[in-house]
Every structure is written in C-alpha cells, then in structure tokens.
Design a binder for these strands. Sequence first.
DNA 1: CAGTGGTCTAGACCACTGG
DNA 2: CAGTGGTCTAGACCACTGC
Lengths: 266, 266
Amino acid sequence: MVSTSLPSHESPVADGSANNVANSATPAFSPLYQQIKGLILNSLRIGEWKPGEAIPSEMDLAGRFKVSQGTVRKAIDELAADNLVVRRQGKGTFVATHAERQVQYRFLKLMPDSGDLNLKGPAQRHIVDCKRLRAPSDVARALALRPGDAVLQVKRVLSFADQPTILEDLWLPGAPFKGLTADRLRGYEGPMYAFFETEFGVRMVRAEEKIRAISADHVHSQLLKVEPLTPLLSVERIAFTYHDIPMELRRGLYVTDTHYYRNELN
Amino acid sequence: MVSTSLPSHESPVADGSANNVANSATPAFSPLYQQIKGLILNSLRIGEWKPGEAIPSEMDLAGRFKVSQGTVRKAIDELAADNLVVRRQGKGTFVATHAERQVQYRFLKLMPDSGDLNLKGPAQRHIVDCKRLRAPSDVARALALRPGDAVLQVKRVLSFADQPTILEDLWLPGAPFKGLTADRLRGYEGPMYAFFETEFGVRMVRAEEKIRAISADHVHSQLLKVEPLTPLLSVERIAFTYHDIPMELRRGLYVTDTHYYRNELN
DNA sequence: CAGTGGTCTAGACCACTGG
DNA sequence: CAGTGGTCTAGACCACTGC
C-alpha cells in the first residue's frame, strides 16, 4: 500500500537530459503525462482507490509526482476518456464503477423499438444454470486459459415486459470467481458487472463484440419462447479487465422483433 | 469567403465582465474554446477549407480569433476527437475526408472471420439499380423530408472473394444529389462517401445504426445467392452531415457466415 | 467559505516534417 | 532551417460543491 506522501520520490523521469530514453532502435519517446497516466493506472489496478471512491485531487497528485497540475490534468483527461475515472466539478475525480444509476448497463446496446430511453432498466432476470466445469478449447482460447482449466458457466434469460428477449451463456475463469453460485447471483440486485466489482474485485474495463445473425434451434426457441428457426442476433462478447486481460466470454442471443442493437459511428 | 486577416474583429466574446451571459434562467455558460470550436466548425461547414486541405495553423487561428494558442488547441482537440479534422505533427491540421487509405470504410464494421485486417478493402461492387422517385413516408421521416419529396434510391451488392455478402438499399435526398446516376457511381473508384464528398460536396460526419436479425426473402436470396430463410444481419443506418442533418438512409443486409459485425465497447 | 475541477494565458522548449 | 503540432510549466481566475 502506497502512502499519500512518499518517503523518497516517485518521479517518473530521472534523466536530466531530454526526458527521452537514449536508445537508438526504439525512439520510445513517451511524454510525461503518459507516464503519469501509467502511474495512476497502476494505482487503480492494485486497488489503491476502490470503485466509486475519489482519487486524490489534481494538486495532490501533482505534488506526489513532482509535476505541474496541468500535466496531471492531461493524464486524468485520458483516463476519463477511457471511462476508467469520472470527473465531477467541485467534488473530485472518482474511480468509475458499473454500480451507478446513470452508467448502468453501459455494455448493453439493446434498445426497445418504442420509448427510446432506458425504461428497460429493471429487466426480469432468470438464472437458468450455473455450474463449474473444464474449459472447452474455444472458451479457453477466448479467456487465455489452458484447455481443461476450471471455468464457470452461467446461463440466464433476461425478459422485458414478460417477453424473454436475451438468452446468455457466460463463461468466467474459475480462479478469480471462486465461490460464485447461482444463489449469490440471484440474490444480487443490479447489474452483473457491479456484482463482479463488489464481490470479486473484478472490474470490466472494455469489451469487444462479434455480431451475427443465426437461426434459433429448439433449445433457444424454448427458452426464449419463439418459433424454431426465428432469426436471432448472436452477440459474442469478450470483456477485459485492466491490462487487457480477458475475464468473461459472453454469448448472447437477442430477439430483435421489438428491440434492436443500437450503434453509433463516428 | 472569409479573408485570412479580418477587417474589424471576429472575437467570440464582447462583454468585459465575466465572459458569462448575464441571464438568470439559463446559465448558458460556454467556455471560450467551445465558442472557438463553433467558429472553426462554421468555417468547415461553409467549406472555407475543403476535405483533405490544411486548415490554418494554431498560431494563425489564435491571431484571427484573438485568443491564446492553448485555447485554439483545445478547440481543435475536440474537433479531432469528433473526427472532423486530423492532426499531423510537423505538417498541420487537415479537414478529414473519407478518401484516405487509412480511414477508408470508416463506417463499415464488417470483418472477415479469418485474416483480421482490412484485406476486404477492394470489394467487388455491383450497382443493381439507381432511380429517382418520391419518398415513402418512412424514408421521408428518416431523412427529415416531406412524404413525396424527390429521393434517389440506389440498390447495390458488395462481394468479397466472389461471394455476395452485402445487399444495400440507399436512399438519398434528391436536391443535394441532383445529377447522380448509376453510371457515375459505377465510374468512381473508392468509397461511396468519398464520391459524395468530391462530386456533391456532402461530407458524412457521423451515423447511427439499428441492427436486427431477419430472414432472407426470395429477392434477398437471389441477389445474395443464399438459401431463402437464411438469417441475415439487418443494418439500418442514418448518416448525418454537419448540423446533424440526415443525408442518407441505408438499409443493409449482411451475410454473416464468413463475416461478422465488429463492435468495441468502452 | 475552502476545496475541487475547469478555463485561459504566456512563454519555453521538444519532436516531427519538408524544403 | 523554419514552420508545424505536442509537451510542460506557473499562475490567475472562474464555476461548482458542500460545509
């Protein structure tokens, strides 16, 4: 644990020449604010400040790292742009969390056809299954595990207005999620990623999705209460924690007759 | 046309008090750099600098607007974040364009299963149809036109490795695209959005997509050479120019057996 | 009121590009 | 080499929050 004021110094650069690594092959120039960003990132990763908590003020951090406030500011700007941290004028800068009302379901892009906004919030959740087993090779590859390593599989159905809409198959690495059970999942109110944060200290930072159209088979049609062969949106997501470590493989099937997957392109 | 050095002054703020509008109901505080951003945006909109051209240097703009370089810098930072402008160290800041190799197909998120990168670049394009007609009500609504206004409809098929993969139905407002024909489209090499820029001065700035899974009907199956009832990804896109004016409605159907729609969540 | 993030400035210097 | 964007600083002041 790092104390607020450091004994010696935590300065990012030590060479007095030109702030640049004196290599020939790799220029490897990294501006000061990037190094500061890295240091703050490390503190986030080791949990020096927990999700929802405030991090030290810009002036404090500037003092700690022996740089100007402006440099700290630029570092925090990038962390805020990456959604790792949230700035609140007059109050401070806070570690981002999936547990807040506004940013809840940040990774769920499904929207109802009518009533644009997130009235979808309180979905009915039904845990179908939750078991521990050995990772199939495709799951192991996605989660950077060895085939046969312990993984948890969670199967659940989300419904909106009593219409089953999302069928999900989650795969989690066994080690970080030791002790997860269907009952604990059922007992938790709120987004699953918030549950992962508070119960297992695993914070999902970003995710990648591969989207396809597929046909419902008999299992799908029963759980989602649609005709077999109904076209479904297949959404395969890999979610990453800090260090770009994959921590979840989620295979979702969305019924898209009254909902759609919304994406914005810039 | 605005000359480089202005006769009187183009200063954004005129009150000497506190830079703030002295209203009670609306705080309406807008920082200087936002106002500068607005002024630069206007110049982009009226075409003072064309896509691909360099805009004036930060120092020049600072002089023009009578603010410090840092303030101009922050304004341009935001324009760059919005992909309206591209910064190139040592060279200048350039108006973004869809015609560049690197940013080409910025709005196309379809990826081949193997060979991650954009070897997909040179797709075979086939214009099926291009005709002028009166806007159906749903198209009119999407393009902010009156039902019955003149619109252009373009139907085309994109193939990768001789496999038809994308069937697209485009709807464009008639007025800005007067003179567009199938032949002109066929004659153009490169992305369609680059074609729109150079030929019609219409630059697409951002887009929204609604994605669903649907079943191929007979028309789809013939054009895409797949079995009827094959599940297809339906991608309905509305693309916007400056001022958030919708300028294109594009209904795409993607065959997703060897390709997938890739999305990143932050 | 003090403390936080947010804006703005002026100036110095660095890294990159091209002639 | 001059010109561009990129970094860093120090200091002043503003807007917002909560006590």
